[in-house]
Amino acid sequence: MQEQKSSFPFSMVERMMPWYPGIAVMGWAFVLIAFLLALFVLSPSQASFFSDAKAVREGAGVGSAFVNANFGSHVLEAWLPQLKFFGLGLGLLAIVMALGTIAKRLRSMGMVIFSQLPEKMRPAVPPPPKRIRLFQLSALMGIMVLMIVLIVGIILAVSVVSGYWNNSIVNDLNPAQPGSTLLSQLSVISSYAFWLNPLRMIGMAFLFTAITVALTVIIGTLRMQTKLLGGLVQKAG
């Protein structure tokens, strides 16, 4: 009994399924990088900025250690959480891939067992469920959303966030008037997290859905095999 090959791009997705240990390690590495950057860059920047009185740190001019520390921590805060969630997303993707591999092995194991029977006794093996495509697409969608969120975070960090925070708070930022570039940058900086954070959770939701659907495929395969084997026993009895 030969399993029918899937069409492109699903054939590629199925070939990549057994790579899940590598994907899991990659996800873990991204989260580790996020932790190390927070520990060795973000935290010292914040400590350095808050090391003097409010009047001194906010009055510091462009190019000073205070402005640089404030600038560095804000730029990092714009993309670091997105990297962390991308790492978590890769971990969830690895789980989906592992479940997909289990479902595929269960199915081929069932086919091996039934292939031992004479052809006329062999039960008709149902085609692979359509839900396989659903969990593959859901997982791809989830990881793509998280990747887009990371790219948006990086773009915001290098454009608006770095443009705004590389200024003296007292001399440039506080006196900014409506219509100025600084205030329009502040408008973006203060609002993007309200849609970007839920959007990355939408990415996670796609990945959770992929896990849910992959589990239904495994459950369905186990139930189907129990039913087919039970039918065989009944027929023989």
Partner: peptide, 10 residues
């Protein structure tokens, strides 16, 4: 947020 921070000075 865009209106509060973008359309009014500090």
């Amino acid at each position: 947020a865009a209106n509060y921070f973008g359309a009014n000075s500090k």
